[in-house]
């Protein structure tokens, strides 16, 4: 038996504050789906199965603009490439667990759940407890996401655009970014990526995002090699 109820509850409880940020984000996604002409069921399908605000917003924008389906799919896939890094970071912790646990935690992997779960794995050092904690964060986030996206779909357009609620999204990522700037090489990686993403802005399909990520990683590796050189 791998399930630990107290850890599951602790995971859900620790996620509660970040729901404040999740609600406006979900509302924006719901509004986007509604504005792009999705039916209620299609909007629910997006939030339930894609379960990624960035991809949902992009999908809605591209569908509304009448972009080819392949472009929409590829663009959403490209923006989801960041899940690869979360997956890699979670991998060592989930290795001892049965495969169905790995599949469940993977399905519920998000920016916030990842950040919280990795901290828990590091603190407790117990795979069973950490995985139940990750499941608790993931289930609460998923359920809240469905409610907030649906709410956004039906009532979202009563929120004035002047409130700029969509700005909560980059702020949420900023809160994840700053703790990641742990030393010189990571700061150089971020700086290089920030410059590259602006310089490459004219690339199609938001390719600037993943290209800037690669530029940043290479810059970080070079900076680290230089720092560690004898």
């Amino acid at each position: 038996m791998y399930f630990s109820r107290p850890d599951f509850v602790a995971g859900a409880r620790d996620m509660a504050p970040s729901l404040i940020g999740l609600l406006p984000f979900g509302l924006v996604c719901g509004v986007g789906a509604q504005a792009a002409g999705a039916s209620p069921l299609e909007a629910l399908g997006m939030s339930a199965l894609i379960f990624s605000g960035a991809a949902q917003i992009l999908a809605a924008q591209l569908m509304a603009a009448g972009a080819p389906l392949a472009v929409t799919i590829l663009t959403c896939f490209v923006i989801g490439l960041r899940f690869l890094m979360y997956s890699a970071a979670m991998a060592p912790h989930l290795k001892p667990l049965p495969s169905r646990w790995r599949h469940a935690v993977a399905f519920l992997l998000t920016d916030q759940a990842f950040a919280a779960a990795v901290r828990r794995f590091r603190d407790s050092g117990d795979t069973r407890n950490g995985a139940s904690y990750a499941l608790g964060t993931g289930v609460l986030l998923w359920a809240t996401w469905q409610v907030s996206c649906t709410l956004g779909y039906w009532v979202g357009n009563v929120i004035p655009a002047a409130w700029s609620l969509d700005f909560v999204v980059p702020l949420c990522f900023l809160a994840l970014l700053v703790p990641a700037l742990e030393d010189g090489p990571t700061r150089i990686a971020a700086l290089a990526a920030g410059i590259a993403v602006v310089a490459l802005d004219s690339l199609p399909m938001r390719l600037s995002l993943i290209c800037a990520g690669i530029v940043g990683i290479v810059a970080g590796l070079i900076a680290e090699a230089k720092r560690d050189a004898p």
Partner: peptide, 10 residues
């Protein structure tokens, strides 16, 4: 370096 680079790019 992926978190620092990708989050900055977002």
């Amino acid at each position: 370096f992926v978190p620092a680079a990708m989050l900055m790019a977002i």
